[in-house]
Amino acid sequence: MTHTWLPPAEYIATLPRATAYACLYFTDTHGRPFQLRAVQAAELWQWPGGNMDPGETPWETALRECREETGLVFTGEPRLLGAHFTSARDVDWPANHIGFIFDGGELTDEQIAGVVLDPSEHSEYRVRTLDAWEREMTPRNFRRLAAIDRARRAGGTIYLEAADGS
C-alpha cells in the first residue's frame, strides 16, 4: 500500500472538525459549587469559561473568559480537573466539542460578592450544595457537575464522554 502525502492544509481538510472550550470550576469555602446562569437559556448553568479564540491555549481561554464573565482574575496554577468530549453525531452542533475544566479553587465570600457579570452572557450567579444543584439543573448537566466535583475532592482528573453530552 502506498501513501500519498498531502500538503498540511489539504490533510487538515480531511480531518474531523472540533471546537474547544475551557473554564474554571470554583466552590465557596464550604465546598459548594459556584455557577452562572446563561442568558441564552435560562435553564443552563455554567462555569466561568467559553470557547477558545484562535491562537489561545485552553488555560489562557479559561483565565480570559473568567475575567470577562465575572471580573475575577485567577492567579493560581493550572490544574486540570477534567476533559469533556461531545461528538458531533450526538448533539445539534456541526463539530465535535472538546472541553477543559480547570480547578479555580475556593472563592471567599468577599470574592463572590465582588463578582460582576457580563449581562450579555449571564443573568445571575449562585452558590449551592450539590443536592440543591441537582434540583435546579438538567440531569445531563448535573452529572457533569457532580463528576467534576468528585474529581476535585479526590484530587484526580476525569475524562467525560457520553452520547448525551454529559
Rank of each mutant, 00 (worst) to 15 (best):
A38Y: 04
A41Y: 06
P16E: 12
A62M: 06
G82M: 11
R32L: 03
P7W: 15
T19F: 13
L44P: 02
I12T: 12
H3I: 14
S87L: 13
G55H: 09
E77C: 14
Y11I: 15
F34W: 00
A38S: 07
D28C: 08
A41C: 02
C66Q: 02
G71F: 08
G50I: 08
A83N: 12
L24N: 02
A22R: 04
R64L: 05
G55W: 11
A18H: 07
G71E: 04
E69Q: 13
T27M: 00
A18C: 10
D28Y: 05
A62Q: 02
H84P: 08
A38Q: 06
L80S: 09
E56R: 10
T2N: 13
M1F: 15
R64M: 07
F85D: 05
P8V: 15
C66I: 01
P58N: 09
A41H: 06
G50R: 10
L63P: 03
A9D: 15
A20P: 02
A88F: 11
E10P: 09
L15N: 07
A20S: 13
L15D: 05
L36G: 03
E43D: 11
P33E: 06
L44I: 02
E43Y: 04
T14S: 06
Y11V: 14
S87T: 08
Q40C: 04
G50Y: 06
A41P: 01
A88R: 13
L80I: 15
Y21A: 08
A83G: 09
Y21M: 09
E60I: 03
N51K: 13
T61I: 04
L36P: 03
S87N: 08
G49V: 07
R37D: 03
P48N: 08
P78K: 12
F34I: 03
E77A: 15
A83S: 13
E10M: 12
L15F: 07
L6D: 11
L36E: 03
T29R: 14
T19E: 14
H30E: 09
L24D: 00
A18M: 12
E69Y: 09
E10N: 10
L63K: 08
T14I: 04
E56C: 06
M52T: 10
P16A: 13
A38W: 03
P48S: 05
E56D: 11
T61W: 05
C66Y: 01
E56I: 03
D53G: 09
G71L: 08
L63E: 02
